[in-house]
Nucleic acid binder design. Structure first.
Lengths: 259, 259
DNA sequence: CCAGTATTTATCCAACGGGTTAATTTCCTC
DNA sequence: GAGGAAATTAACCCGTTGGATAAATACTGG
């Protein structure tokens, strides 16, 4: 049933017909069956593994599918990375590395405190939108009670710069009078992540429950506006226009949509 | 390796030694090997399945383990419920039924709007704390892109009463002047769920990242206070004392804990 | 151009795991 | 108390799957 034909194909076929030089040199006999490319192979394996683990979880992931989608022989996985769990941990570490790296690129120091918070929410939201596999991987890892993460000194040493960024921004905001209250930066960090993460990670079930597509453009825009308004209203004490659709105006039917 | 010895034991052993009546009646020969109990059996199967799916996800769950933990023969699962996916869907539907039932028991109509919101957050938080399997099941279902939920007319007809509750509470709050702004009840519902869900569902990885136990009593209390303060501050415009530890006071070391 | 090493392919397999078949036992009812 | 349906057990089936082995092929340094 499962067609893994690609596993039987060499990863990079050099088409003999195109090998003009070889023909010119009258050494056409030798047709290379594959090229060496250890770095590229490793990258393709990790990318395929990321997709597979994100789509099916750790237990549901299939080593054969990873190999097939990486255009590699299954043996390559074990040669270049290790067994299934090693592969999974490598993917997880890569995912953390990537977000940490992008986080570092965000410069909030020179912005107004409220603007800085908005940028923070905007970044988090869009990063999650752009990297849905990251959400899935985190859920998978939490299902495993962070068993793998605990063993990874690599990830544990990768601190998010956001907590410190938030700390200074909130301090500045309180001093400037933009913010009314001092908030624990860790709690605020978790809350912002939560508002974005839950909506996107659970969009499938929520969409069924509410009977509408929460991932379509308008819904996403509405959500982002709501989150920014919620957090900024709490911090500044001033309410913005975009807090969410008014309760009174009956944009949607009074009860849930009939399904 | 995997010791499934319990599967070979009858689910309810009547100890012959204790069967005094049978001995008295001189019919001691007949020793019952098991009792009939279809309803009880079905319940034990579903409970064991819930734990198994919550702990390992759909793909990681093992039918043999479910049977063993239910004190049942594997064949019983198929006899009483169906195959693995049927079993999973039954568990999922049961989980939604349970939370919807408890939600209906929450009466917010007669409370002050701010107090009603606090009760709502408090309930959501404690329900998730008391039912960690529910969180895991939702994550599993979202990994499957809500494939099973979509087929369940049962769940789709179980509307949460919370959205309507929030709508009326917010309306009342705006009229009474307690709340400054009208919020979309669906967005607020999702936000409250998000603040609670993410923290608990991701507590394993977050605890590793931050190098401290986010599930211990003090951390949980701090989190609940923060969430209530955040949402109420946004709605009422007034800040409460419990918004979170002040930024200035150095309760924890300036950087992350060394691990 | 040759030897040795790095990389890739082609098979193989033993354990696992979901599901099934058939026989056995209990309990209800007439 | 006998007959039969319902509930339960025991044993088996067979495709899947992670992983291993060994052979083949490409590259590199001498």
């Amino acid at each position: 049933m499962n067609n893994l034909h690609s596993q039987t194909l060499p990863c990079v076929l050099q088409l003999a017909l195109c090998d003009y030089r070889a023909i010119d040199l009258a050494k056409a006999k030798r047709v290379q069956k594959w090229q060496r490319d250890p770095e590229g192979m490793r990258l393709r394996i990790l990318e395929a593994a990321k997709q597979e683990f994100a789509a099916h979880g750790l237990a549901g992931a299939r080593v054969d599918r990873i190999a097939a989608n990486a255009g590699a022989n299954k043996r390559m996985l074990y040669y270049h990375v290790g067994n299934k769990e090693d592969l999974y941990l490598a993917v997880l570490e890569g995912a953390y590395e990537k977000i940490r790296s992008e986080e570092r690129g965000l410069d909030l120091e020179h912005l107004d405190p409220p603007e800085a918070i908005e940028r923070l929410i905007d970044f988090t939201w869009n990063y999650f939108l752009r990297n849905p596999e990251f959400l899935a991987l985190l859920n998978t890892e939490n299902l495993a009670k962070a068993r793998h993460l605990k063993r990874s000194t690599k990830v544990k040493s990768m601190h998010s710069p956001f907590v410190e960024m938030i700390r200074t921004v909130v301090t500045r905001g309180v001093e400037s009078g933009d913010f009314r209250v001092a908030v624990d930066p860790v709690q605020l960090y978790i809350s912002i992540a939560a508002l974005c993460f839950f909506y996107l990670s659970n969009s499938a079930t929520l969409s069924v429950i509410f009977g509408r597509d929460l991932l379509k453009k308008e819904a996403r825009d509405e959500r982002l506006a709501h989150m920014v308004a919620l957090v900024l209203a709490a911090l500044t004490g001033k309410s913005t226009a975009d807090f969410g659709k008014a309760v009174g105006q009956d944009v949607r039917p009074p009860a849930h949509q009939p399904v």
